[in-house]
Design a protein around this nucleic acid. Sequence first.
DNA 1: CGAGTATTTGATGCAGTTCAACGCTCGTGG
DNA 2: CCACGAGCGTTGAACTGCATCAAATACTCG
Lengths: 242, 242
Amino acid sequence: MATRCAQCPLRQLPLFDDFSADEVDFMQSFKKGEMSIGPGTAILIEGSRSPQLFTALSGLGLRYKTLRNGRRQVVNFVFPGDFIGLQAALMDEMSHSVEATTSMTLCVFNRSELWSLFKNHPERAFDLTWLAAAEEQFLGEALASIGQRSAVERIAWALVRIHARAEALSLLRNGRVHFPFRQQDLADTLGLSLVHTNKTLAGLRGQQLVSWADGQLHVMDLEGLARQAMTDLRRAPRRPLM
Amino acid sequence: MATRCAQCPLRQLPLFDDFSADEVDFMQSFKKGEMSIGPGTAILIEGSRSPQLFTALSGLGLRYKTLRNGRRQVVNFVFPGDFIGLQAALMDEMSHSVEATTSMTLCVFNRSELWSLFKNHPERAFDLTWLAAAEEQFLGEALASIGQRSAVERIAWALVRIHARAEALSLLRNGRVHFPFRQQDLADTLGLSLVHTNKTLAGLRGQQLVSWADGQLHVMDLEGLARQAMTDLRRAPRRPLM
DNA sequence: CGAGTATTTGATGCAGTTCAACGCTCGTGG
DNA sequence: CCACGAGCGTTGAACTGCATCAAATACTCG
């Protein structure tokens, strides 16, 4: 049974902007259904068009690009509340693939109705643009991390960010998040080899900063981790939910 | 004397989407003036708010982030037609700085009127979102390059992209573009050291693929360069101009 | 129980960094 | 008019962070 937008569990979170009654109504009509998929399912494929857009309701996934030489770049992790398919909607083609890591449920929207959103719901169009700008901002930061930080710094940076996202989504249970990715995924995120990622993680674990085992990520010393990352912790700003 | 939008030299280029008469009128009213600045001038500063948004009319610039450790990541080069300040407009703060490398002229818009653009000109709002998505796409590609490509591949990739942008803007004069950046700028773009960038460029020059000296970039063998870059040349799609 | 996948650890090698020095051009001031 | 220094490109030499290779362990699942 599909969740009604009025009851959307995500909207309750302080992370997300409030909705007006009108907005709830509109989103309810914009929403075409719900989709449940199993781990490993491809949601969108690089280079393909898609008639559908999605918002992740629950579960975790990966965005990634595959290069000609066979290597893979993870572009971001997908958390609940993330909008999926903006590129396919605007430019006709996705520039990266999106795949479910755990089982996921997604709200489904029709690409063909996007124009009416811009036409009739400028607040929602604004929000959509906000999301695009936020993703741009994130990618800029990721670029700076991969380009200018050492391996420890990159890994610490990534873990700090993941922790912050989990926190903002109330996914922490006494400091722990369910984080069912492989070390290879993190390596492909940060442009590091699997082996070096493993050894670097061992180092951070040894310093009692963080532990990550059995799909559980536990940040034990956020300050210390941020120090390693050469970054400062900024609280995630409230953001729109589509 | 400020250029009238009706006469905008950029709009004539096949790269940019056609404007309706209405759109020209609106942009003319949206445009608050023109700004001319000298080389080295900061346009927007990371972390600051700005009441103004810009479109580059002529000249070249850099977008970059500065990290806590003092290192710099160049996020993109600014070419004519680029919109500057979207982040400041939507989220309150720029996540990177923008600086003129040559002297530049910029169209100036008021941030405060952005909302009326969304409200009254949905096509233009759509275009703005398109631009944000395009930047996101580019950054994803850059991320993959820095994360997964070798030094030669990265440099070749960057030069191919720069060449393509120049071409799309009709900036080529028998294969040559004015490209007045320092090797340090390219190094900071690609996460490489200056020294290694220099040596790698020398290698590509030795293979007769490309030469870059005295602020002139000359791609002599585009196919060959693309091969080195492990990328394929795709023609830049038409895009909106703000 | 064997096959497949993920994590871990040790050993070796190299791509790219860092350090250092030199040449060229250009602007500035004595 | 020349001396000087600053900025950029270039090149050589030495070092190192991380990749690559290899192999063992631990799990899960059919």
